[in-house]
Amino acid sequence: MQDLFLHYGYDFTEYSKTSLQRRVQRLFTLDKFPSFAEFRYRLKNDPHYFRRFVEEITVNVTEMLRDPGFYKTLRAKILPVLATYPFIRIWHAGCSTGEEVYSMAILLREAGLLHKSLLYGTDINPQVIERARSGIFPVSQMQKYSSNYLQSGGHMDFSSYYTANYDLAKFDTALAEKMIFSTHNLASDFSFNEFQLILCRNVLIYFERGLQTKVLNLLDSSLENFGFLALGNKESLRFSLIADRYRQFDGKEKIWRKVNEIH
């Protein structure tokens, strides 16, 4: 498999092996290949199929306002700090299909900050970035998102943010005006800006320790001093080399603040 990844310019060597293997096995079964050799042949000779492959073996499970408690903390404690900046830059690293970016835009709009914000959403996977750009999500999810929204401290009618058409919900294009979506590979690409808030939730769990360190360094170099770094519920800076420069901002949520810069 290794040569294949490199052939297309992707490097998955430092991904958690068992997790990756399980994803590959799942796709192999899902697409009903008669043998592994044929699976491999198709991957090597069909770039379209390879795109599907990248989409399927990376985990793209996401939802709007996932973990409402986290968003409640953003509203109550982080946005008031960001509000003091003349211009707010936020990076969603590994944004998948963009639900988290739209969630953030809703929070910013309700705090009256969206007009002076810029939200960057990046992912390794071109396919999901396309979907993120469209701002269209399955309408079947809206009931859950609406409930997440209320739990996160929202007071509006959540359905005012989208127009439902058959089984799809198209989100207000005004929300997307401040979003920039692009592919970015955390494993191999570089820092491209400085942000006051970076969200990278449930991404590091798929990487081995070495790659986690590398990615955390990348995030660190992309975060302004006194900026915030948000990780997934089961992720931590505890074992990382950058931990010294960060203080956990809210004991319960996985949000750290960069407290000093060592040059």
Binding site: S16, T18, S19, R22, V59, V61, I205, G232
Partner: peptide
């Protein structure tokens, strides 16, 4: 999941 080195890994896939 149990990884190749015996460590636990977490996965929030489907």
């Amino acid at each position: 999941l149990i990884e190749h080195d015996g460590s636990f890994s977490l996965d929030n896939s489907e």
